[in-house]
Simulated scan of single mutants.
Amino acid sequence: MATNVAAMDCTPEDVFRVLGNGWLYPAWVVGASRMRAVDSSWPGPAAELHHSVGVWPFLLDDTTQITAWEPPHRVVMRARGWPVGEADVTLMVRARENGCLVRIDEEAVSGPAALLPRVITTPILRWRNAETLRRLRYLAEGRAR
């Protein structure tokens, strides 16, 4: 499992306002290119985001589904990005003085990525998720102002 942590100068509620807006998903998730639709029940149980991954003209349509929504502390999603596979992504948010800490854990659970040794996938996911948290921080801190 790949884990990253980032300090943010905003409240956990600010972070969850970004996470709760499905249309912002490609603004903070590295690899997501565009949104096609957001279930009206987002971020409710089993709600899905319908997004595309890749770059034009090589875009693949897929979905991400909420498996747990516990604001302002925890969200768990099943992210799909076939043909690479699926991953469980957990974001945990903890208040601290002058802001919060956000931790992201990601693990490939099916498809070709799940068959690769973690010694290969973990550094790639950590590199990607460092930028994902950076983008999430910009959005959450911006909404806090």
Rank of each mutant, 00 (worst) to 15 (best):
P12H: 10
P12F: 11
E13P: 03
D14Q: 03
D14N: 15
V15K: 04
R17H: 10
R17V: 05
R17C: 07
R17D: 12
V18T: 09
L19R: 07
N21C: 06
N21L: 04
N21Q: 09
G22F: 05
W23L: 11
W23N: 12
L24Q: 02
Y25T: 09
P26T: 09
A27D: 14
W28E: 02
V30K: 04
S33A: 13
M35Y: 03
M35A: 09
D39Y: 09
S40G: 15
S41Y: 01
P43H: 04
P43G: 02
G44W: 03
G44A: 12
P45I: 09
A46V: 06
A47D: 02
A47Y: 00
E48T: 02
L49F: 08
L49W: 04
L49R: 01
H50W: 08
H51L: 15
S52Y: 02
V53L: 13
V53S: 06
V55S: 12
P57R: 03
P57C: 11
F58T: 06
L60P: 00
L60W: 03
D61E: 12
D61T: 12
D61I: 03
T64E: 06
T64A: 15
P71S: 09
P71C: 11
R74G: 03
R74K: 14
V75T: 11
M77I: 13
R78W: 00
G81A: 12
V84Y: 12
G85T: 11
A87F: 05
V89R: 01
L91C: 06
M92H: 05
M92K: 11
V93K: 02
A95E: 14
A95Q: 14
